[in-house]
């Protein structure tokens, strides 16, 4: 087993090309299933073959690597499930292609899916996901089998720490608009079947909406190219985009798409 692992490590290599002061080019292996296998150094040990998975909200390492790389488990954060022992841990240092991150949270468990993949595709000891890659601006290129990583200063949240909060967080207040000022748009409760936008039922006379050129019967389709297809989405998109200043609202008027500029009202509360 060790020989196979070593051979693969040599084949794939851990070639690190430093292109900029802090830009790293890391290699990856595109497996026949389309999965990406990368070679990762953990606490100075390895490299270990892991799957690079943008869809993974947590990192995952096998119990074997947990032991081999001396990963410290968080006290009181482990247990036994129907899938075997499971624990949370802190990786002191995780490095891929020269891109290195300290204190990365991970799950330690022998995941059945990872095992199935390894059975068919050769050594795979876990998954590298969001808590690592979100700390970099990454460029993925399957053709070159390369990922470029540049530190971006982003601090990912700890999903494992927050997960119970996600489940039990009470929503005791309706979703709020991004401003308590009146814009002057009243919408039909129905969504337009054709454009999937919001039908404007009424424009309040003298309002910002009227001054901005909205008319009764318009359908609001998008804001700064972000689709608006329900009322909650409208509040969310407007809140996100007003941060940048005034927004461009795409409307459908008598089946013709038009753009209107909507300023952020004075005294708007975020």
């Amino acid at each position: 087993m060790k020989i196979i692992l070593a051979t693969i490590v040599h084949l794939v290599g851990i070639s690190t090309l430093l292109t900029g002061a802090e830009t790293h080019q890391a290699t990856m292996e595109v497996l026949k299933t389309g999965h990406l296998r990368i070679q990762v150094t953990i606490n100075g040990n390895g490299p270990y073959p892991l799957i690079f998975d943008t869809g993974a909200p947590v990192n995952l390492l096998s119990n074997k690597i947990g032991k081999e790389a001396n990963i410290k488990r968080k006290p009181g954060r482990s247990g036994l499930t129907f899938m075997g022992p499971i624990g949370e841990a802190d990786i002191a240092s995780l490095e891929w292609g020269g891109a290195k991150v300290e204190h990365v949270p991970t799950m330690i468990m022998d995941h059945p899916t990872v095992k199935t993949l390894a059975d068919h595709l050769g050594p795979i000891e876990g998954i590298v996901g969001f808590p690592f890659f979100a700390k970099f601006a990454i460029t993925i290129n399957y053709q070159k089998k390369m990922v470029t990583l540049e530190p971006n200063g982003f601090i990912p949240g700890d999903l494992m720490k927050n997960s119970m909060g996600l489940i039990f967080k009470k929503q005791n207040q309706p979703i709020q608009p991004p401003s308590e000022q009146v814009i002057g748009l009243i919408f039909s409760p129905q969504i337009d079947r054709k454009t999937h936008g919001l039908v404007i039922e009424k424009i309040l006379a003298g309002s910002l909406a009227e001054k901005s050129g909205f008319k009764t019967g318009d359908t609001l389709v998008a804001i700064n190219q972000r689709w608006v297809n329900d009322h909650a989405g409208l509040f969310q998109v407007l809140g996100e985009q007003w941060v940048k200043g005034s927004v461009i609202v795409e409307i459908s008027r008598e089946n013709v798409l038009q753009e209107l500029k909507l300023n952020k009202p004075v005294g708007a509360t975020p």
Partner: peptide
Amino acid sequence: LTLAGMELHGLIGYSVLAKYEIHIDAK
């Protein structure tokens, strides 16, 4: 569990992603 804050309808994986060079910056 409505965990994501929105309903998720699917996954876009290799067969689509490999056609592009994809730049992602969480910022």
